Simulated assay, not measured.
Amino acid sequence: MRKTKKIIIIGGGIGGAATALALNRAGFDVSIYERAQELREVGAGIALWANATHVLNELGLLEDAVRNGCLTTNYQFLTENGKELVNVSVDKFELPVIGIHRADLHKILCSQVASKFTLGQTFERFEQDGAKVSVDMKSGLHDEGDALIGADGLKSQVRAALFGESPPIYRNFTTWRGLTNYIPNQYRPGYIHEFLGRGKGFGFMMLGNNRMYWYAADKTKQGQKHELEVMFQNWFSAIPELIAATDKANIIQTDLYDRVPTRPWGTGNITLLGDAAHPMLPTLGQGACMALEDALVITKCLQESDNITKAFEHYELQRFPRVKSIVEQSLRSGRMGELENPIAVKLRNQFMKLMGSAIADSFTSFHSFRA
């Protein structure tokens, strides 16, 4: 009888929680260490595209996500004044697209594996010894298992322990994410409305429980502060309305980073997952979706091979081409948003109008993938 393998996961966000759930359902022994003192996800809203809702369906959680989210049918790009550039239907797949609060998704993922979490633990170091790997936390806690997965985000300490400290790349944008109960009259049910201006952007969409999520981005130097109300005061009327209607406590500002996609992601029985392996800009809305895909693929690879090193190599080989493509396309999309010259912005807008069908096709190629 084959002995149950123990997998240690560092990081209990969406990627770590999804991986723990998938592995637990597949019969692995899982331990998750999370530095937060309580089991909750920060942030605001995300779009779960069909490639991600496929993963939730495989994990038996799709109905829960639909119940807690809002079905999305269209992704509409507009000028800052509200003139439509492109309108892409996103409800043509066999699986739905869902707008959901990150905390609601995290709660759904954690509900069946909460007992596997140890909270308030910050990773310090690992040690490999043959087929085993041990981890030490700053608290003094020690654990040993058959494999280690670093799912500890953009500034992953597991990544740093593997490959040395290397800061992520600031990509010239800061972003704000807001949550409010105010729904503008101009909102079209089922739509993601995204407005493109000169070095700025703004979008809004519905989440579950009748909440409106909005996001803004501005080309700026790292760490600078700006007044949102002033920046977007002359934009489409729903935008300053949403900003004014949002409590400042419900607005999160974050600088945007990624990394140049590189391999390897690990060595032997240690690997990385999600933003720890392949952080990307949010311009295509695929960050959390890629972490969910990773969770399913790494579980399948571990099920298919009794050799963890080979399973992790196979996982990396499967995932790298797809995530590399999406990281690079997210960066290209971000650079289109950097344009500030009025002539360049006008040309970009005309290009988007002309390329509407190609943009729709690119959405299909992203979202039709099934891990």
Score class of each variant (00 low, 15 high):
Arg2Val: 07
Arg2His: 13
Ile8Glu: 02
Ile10His: 08
Gly15Tyr: 02
Ala18Cys: 04
Thr19Lys: 00
Ala26Phe: 06
Tyr33Phe: 15
Arg35Met: 11
Glu41His: 05
Gly45Ser: 07
Leu48Val: 01
Asn51Ile: 00
Gly60Met: 00
Glu63Arg: 11
Asp64Phe: 00
Thr72Gln: 14
Asn74Pro: 02
Tyr75Ile: 07
Thr79Tyr: 01
Glu84Asn: 12
Leu85Gln: 08
Leu85Arg: 09
Val86Ala: 10
Val88Arg: 09
Val88Pro: 09
Val88Thr: 15
Ser89His: 12
Leu95Gly: 03
Pro96Tyr: 03
Leu105Ser: 05
Ile108Trp: 04
Ala114Ser: 15
Thr118Glu: 12
Leu119Lys: 05
Gly120Leu: 08
Thr122Ile: 08
Glu124Val: 00
Glu124Ile: 04
Gly130Phe: 07
Leu141Thr: 12
Gln157Cys: 00
Leu162Ser: 09
Tyr170Cys: 08
Tyr170Pro: 04
Phe173Tyr: 11
Asn185His: 10
Gln186Thr: 15
Ile192Glu: 10
Phe195Val: 06
Gly199Tyr: 12
Lys200Val: 09
Phe204Met: 10
Gly208Ser: 04
Tyr213Ser: 14
Tyr215Gly: 13
Ala217Asp: 13
Gln222Cys: 04
Glu229Gly: 11
Gln233Asn: 13
Phe236Gln: 14
Ala238Phe: 02
Pro240Gln: 00
Thr246Lys: 09
Thr254Trp: 11
Tyr257Cys: 01
Tyr257Trp: 10
Ile270Pro: 09
Gly274Met: 00
Gly274Val: 00
Pro279Ala: 00
Thr283Pro: 03
Leu284Phe: 07
Gly287Thr: 06
Cys289Gln: 01
Ile298Leu: 15
Gln303Gly: 11
Ser305Gln: 12
Ser305Pro: 05
Asp306Thr: 11
Phe312Asn: 08
Tyr315Glu: 05
Leu317Met: 11
Val323Met: 06
Gln329Met: 13
Arg335Cys: 01
Gly337Gln: 13
Glu340Phe: 01
Ile343Glu: 13
Arg348Pro: 06
Lys353Glu: 13
Gly356Ser: 15
Asp361Lys: 14
Asp361Glu: 14
Thr364Arg: 13
Phe366Val: 08
Ser368Thr: 14
